[in-house]
């Protein structure tokens, strides 16, 4: 995707934009190699506290999914009215390192989702309120 101005992101620390090709950022334990999303201060596997930034990538396989069928209460801030709410997909996507990232999905049709299908990272304007810049978050779409 291409954007004229830098998009307003809900979670700027978790993403590198690379000119419209977003990549997820996490961390890795220097002691045992365990990978985390989001970046972690310490390692819950080996209890060390020596972490380094780690690029998780932008492609993975759908590991599980659901459809969010009702409008969440706060702290959700999509901003739409209850009548305008549209169900959205949510899933875990297994990245090449093996870590599974929880994410919104760009599709909400059960027939279009299958565990194991290839997914690619994109940005989605989850909050679109008149008079405000849209707010984007990361989302996975079925790979073309």
């Amino acid at each position: 995707m291409t954007l004229d101005t830098p998009p307003k992101l809900a979670c700027p620390d978790q993403l590198e934009l690379n000119g419209g090709h977003p990549t997820l950022m996490g961390s890795r334990c220097r002691n045992c190699g365990e990978v985390y999303f989001p970046a972690s201060q310490g390692c819950t596997r080996c209890c060390a506290i020596d972490m380094e930034p780690f690029t998780l990538g932008s492609e993975g396989l759908l590991w599980s999914w659901t459809i969010q069928g009702f409008q969440p209460k706060t702290p959700y801030n999509g901003g739409e009215s209850e009548a305008d709410f549209k169900p959205y997909g949510v899933g875990y996507v297994e990245m090449p390192s093996g870590v599974k990232v929880e994410s919104r999905l760009t599709v909400a049709d059960p027939a279009a989702l299958r565990i194991g299908m290839p997914m690619v990272l994109t940005l989605e304007a989850y909050r679109q309120v008149p008079g405000e810049a849209p707010v984007f978050t990361y989302a996975f779409a079925p790979a073309a």
Binding site: C11, Q14, S64, Q68, G78, V90, Y126, T137
Partner: peptide
């Protein structure tokens, strides 16, 4: 962090479903 709730990922029903 706040974004996790704001973007609609912090629901127990969602977790049980996944």
């Amino acid at each position: 962090e706040d974004w996790y709730g704001e973007t609609g990922l912090m629901l127990t029903t969602q977790f049980f479903a996944l």
